[in-house]
């Protein structure tokens, strides 16, 4: 399938199909990670992360894919792996071209969201469910209250706030430990 077709899949909301197509590129990325000393499990993680970065960028209105999906995913994966291994020398960072810089930026930005995700996963199952229903599925408080058997919408709303606040607290403390 051509890259253009995959992009249309993304745009029309067939993200699952698009991901399935992109997974065909995985063996080559796996080779890259293996050649850099990673394991197969590392390769799976890196590729997954690369797909997330790609998806995030595709969602941005100002993003255009300048190279093929393969080249893009290859660069992103390479950056993710290098960043994970902390292998960047100052010289390397200095020599990056604008294209690479934007990719590197995306990768670094993604780390922030990774932390947020970790914080989210530390919440209780009920909190996770509530937040996901509200923010991802865009369910109304009324429906959520019904589904989760809250007595009223207001309680659902309050509960959501508490969950969010808790996630933020966890996120902040994590961010602090990393920075310090």
């Amino acid at each position: 399938m051509s890259d253009q077709k995959i992009i249309t899949l993304f745009k029309n909301g067939y993200r699952d199909k698009a991901f399935r197509e992109l997974y065909k590129l995985y063996p080559r990325i796996e080779k890259l990670i293996l050649s850099k000393g990673g394991t197969k499990a590392d390769a799976t993680d890196v590729f997954q992360e690369a797909l997330i970065v790609l998806n995030r960028n595709l969602e941005k209105s100002n993003f255009t894919l300048t190279a093929s999906f393969y080249t893009y995913l290859y660069s992103v994966s390479r950056f993710i792996w290098k960043d994970q291994q902390k292998q960047f020398s100052k010289q390397e960072l200095h020599d990056l071209n604008t294209e690479d810089v934007s990719i590197f930026h995306s990768v670094l930005e993604e780390k922030k969201y990774q932390l947020a995700e970790q914080a989210f996963h530390e919440l209780g199952a009920r909190c996770q469910q509530l937040l996901q229903w509200f923010y991802v599925k865009k369910m109304s408080f009324k429906d959520i209250a019904e589904q989760m058997q809250f007595k009223s919408e207001k309680i659902a709303k309050n509960q959501k706030y508490k969950c969010l606040q808790k996630a933020k607290d966890i996120y902040r403390s994590q961010a602090n430990t990393i920075h310090s």
Partner: peptide, 10 residues
């Protein structure tokens, strides 16, 4: 950021 984190999980 947090919202992105939630979306990431999905």
């Amino acid at each position: 950021t947090l919202l992105e984190g939630i979306k990431r999980s999905d």
